[in-house]
Design a protein around this nucleic acid. Structure first.
Lengths: 225, 225
DNA sequence: ACAAAAGTGTTGAGAGTACACCCATGC
DNA sequence: GCATGGGTGTACTCTCAACACTTTTGT
């Protein structure tokens, strides 16, 4: 028997793309140009080609929308309810990506469809089951942030400690103690001083950068309570 | 445009079915009757029908092989490498299930194909990328066990504390301190005394059972170091 | 009475939390 | 010299890990 003898569900990937912008945690959404859900906002995604791996498909979507190639990308969950797409049975493998705002090409993807960054704290109505996907992605991001060092992926190459702490506060939605944060993040050994400083309104702050092996290294340890 | 206009990858579900048998953590495998990988052992699985949810498909596979309907079932990961099945591009959504050995119907599925329970510590060569899937499932089971109360799903309805501790030791592959185990598991409030005892070789032991809401309740707390 | 498994407390170490002041710079 | 953000240390609490003896039953 051949694999082609039966009707099969279709497979898409959807990518929840997070970034830090405007002191806010934001996601990239696209406005649908065709039915169903015409003119509603949706998570960027598309069909998986035959012979294309899921991760490649997700990276392709990501690059189409943002112009970014090097990002943190993690498989989230696979949503396969037969009723989730009115056109037929479409299974979607959801991914989430963390990108530095400075790496984004603002012109990417803009010719094809309207795209926009939306605060996760103030979202429009979403097409399909994308609200579920997004809320699960946010939950997972927060969870990951506490146990691993992925927060780094949202910041530029070098940064000062207050920026890192602010990033954590924005994502977690709560205040963190300055001294305890320093002690933990430095104790975890995942960032290093660059030796440079950044001048600002007050005393100049030390610049840090992430160690490349940091994400893998902290996998087991909980960073924040 | 119709969803049917393009060739699509096929979608299967594979279910890693764990149980505790013979003082060992074992998984159910089926011997393949057809090429590719004829006569090799594989994780039970099958195609997802159009209109069927992923979870339903997984439960269907599970019932076909074990006769069990009520189990703990969790989506594991979706494997979609185009080269993983030589017949073509087959994406598989992997699940893992925990079943009580006493609930298993030993005759289920036996007419169609040869099935067998294998120790996770002594597995045969596996078809496709099933060795990867299984090792990831085991990792996830251990991880889950430490942070949540899923271990319960592998035991009969009532049990004594030493059985529960032994179950944890078998799965984690390490010894646990008797007193610390008692304190933690009782402190977590996930099990209750039934009031009965079980006589054995030594002093009779109190019987316990799980509270139905237990699995949900302990999600955030780490049970074992 | 003895074998076999069940049951029970304490102590020390490390991690987490809360909390307030001095430091370096620009204007 | 003052406003602004950067940088630092300590004490208390709580959780985890290590550890050995008594109790209850069956034979």
């Amino acid at each position: 028997m051949s694999l082609k003898d039966y009707p099969h569900p279709s497979v898409t990937v959807d990518v929840v793309i997070f970034t830090l912008r405007e002191d806010d945690l934001q996601v990239l959404l696209v406005k649908r140009a065709h039915p169903p859900f015409e003119d509603m906002w949706a998570i960027p995604g598309g069909f998986v080609d035959v012979g294309e791996s899921l991760e490649k498909a997700a990276l392709r979507e990501l690059e189409e929308e943002t112009g970014v190639r090097k990002v943190y990308l993690e498989q989230l969950y696979t949503f396969g309810d037969p009723g989730r797409d009115p056109r037929g049975h479409v299974i979607t493998v959801a991914y989430f990506a963390l990108v530095t705002v400075s790496a984004i090409d603002p012109h990417a993807g803009s010719d094809a469809a309207e795209t926009g960054w939306w605060s996760v704290y103030d979202l429009p109505p979403l097409a399909f089951d994308h609200a579920d996907i997004l809320s699960y992605a946010l939950e997972r991001l927060r969870y990951k942030l506490e146990y691993t060092a992925v927060g780094f992926e949202l910041l530029p190459e070098t940064f000062v400690l207050s920026e890192l702490r602010t990033a954590y506060e924005i994502i977690l939605g709560e205040q963190l103690d300055k001294r305890n944060f320093r002690r933990k993040i430095l104790g975890a050994g995942v960032i290093e001083e660059t030796g440079d400083h950044r001048a600002g309104e007050g005393r100049p702050a030390k610049l840090y950068h992430f160690r490349d092996d940091a994400v893998a290294e902290v996998k087991t340890r909980r960073l924040f309570p």
